[in-house]
């Protein structure tokens, strides 16, 4: 079986005059948690809806599980979906919902085992309407997984959850991946993408503007090294070193921005000049910084 669970090639989706997805190409590998990250309206949900077969692309090609235009029935059996805002009947009990959805699939998981894993076993006999936001979200995940899918699509998984419930849900998603399920996660929380995803595609205005591991994306946005030199040092001496993009000297400190070899080259320069750095701080940029920079670059390029 192919190692790529999803391959998207030049996807474009238009609604009337609006272009929701301009040009998206990416592929998702078996067994990874792949994140689609971006602000609202970036085309994230539209893209996953195309993958799930809920929407037809205007142009482009999508192959799921190695087949283009996978037969709708097979797609529904192999792909488990947790959609944004999809409810259940108010008076349906948790265990009944699990049993019902289990009956839809040829080879379902054990509903009780799944409920226990998601911490819902005590809510077995509660009505859907009585569940908290976090419990509904976990039930929704359970229903997405009940059919033993090869690919789980989770859209805005933790929106509206409190921090504790969010952490708990993240744990569940890592567990799923560890069981061999490929996960496609749509989110606009950087922290979530950083914590969970093996690789992230950054969406902006219907395009992919970055695709890498969260760590590499963040590193791309650079580092900041700052220190107080024990003996005076002309900041200009650090300009032009490998990896250094900017040097400034606010109130007795020296701040060096850059990436790549930044730290090594600055430290080497200091040692060779016999300058001892005090109060040294290295600030690693986060995915958030990277994201802000990437989208700003895009916007600047567009204008």
């Amino acid at each position: 079986m192919s190692d790529e669970v999803v391959q998207i090639d030049k996807l474009q989706v238009r609604y009337g005059d609006t272009v929701a997805v301009q040009d998206v190409s990416l592929s998702i590998r078996r067994g990874e948690i792949f994140g689609i990250l971006g602000p609202n309206g970036a085309g994230k949900t539209t893209t996953v809806e195309c993958v799930a077969g809920l929407r037809s692309p205007s142009s482009g090609r999508i192959a799921v599980l190695g087949e283009v235009g996978l037969d709708r029935n097979r797609l529904r059996e192999q792909v488990g979906i947790q959609l944004q805002s999809s409810g259940l009947p108010d008076k349906l009990h948790v265990a009944e919902a699990m049993e019902l959805f289990a009956s839809f699939y040829p080879n379902p998981r054990d509903p009780d085992e799944l409920l226990t894993r998601l911490g819902l076993e005590e809510k077995r006999d509660s009505r859907f309407a009585k569940l908290s936001g976090g419990q509904r979200q976990r039930l929704s995940i359970a229903l997405a997984l009940i059919g033993q899918p090869q690919l789980a699509i989770l859209d805005e998984l933790t929106t509206g959850l409190d921090p504790a419930a969010r952490r708990e849900t993240w744990k569940v998603i890592s567990d799923i991946r560890d069981q061999g399920v490929t996960v496609l996660l749509v989110t606009h929380f950087m922290e979530e993408a950083e914590y969970l995803c093996d690789r992230v595609a950054v969406f902006h205005r219907g395009r992919v503007i970055g695709l890498d591991s969260p760590g590499s994306l963040a590193a791309g946005a650079g580092q900041k090294l700052s220190f107080r030199p024990k003996t005076p040092l002309d900041p200009a001496e650090l300009r032009g070193l490998a990896g250094v993009s900017n040097v400034s000297a606010p109130d007795g400190r020296i701040e060096v921005d850059g990436g790549g070899d930044l730290i090594a080259s600055v430290m080497e320069a200091l040692v060779s000049r016999g300058v001892v750095p005090l109060e040294t701080r290295v600030e690693q940029s986060t995915l958030d910084d990277a994201f802000v920079r990437m989208t700003a670059d895009e916007d600047a390029a567009a204008n």
């Binding site: 799930a52 809920l54 529904r76 979906i81 805002s85 409810g87 009947p89 040829p106 059919g147």
Partner: peptide, 18 residues
């Protein structure tokens, strides 16, 4: 109409039963 409003019909359409 309630099921449609809640997104339940849409949720079902992603399962093999439709």
């Amino acid at each position: 109409a309630g099921y449609r409003d809640k997104g339940y019909l849409r949720r079902l359409s992603t399962t093999p039963v439709g």
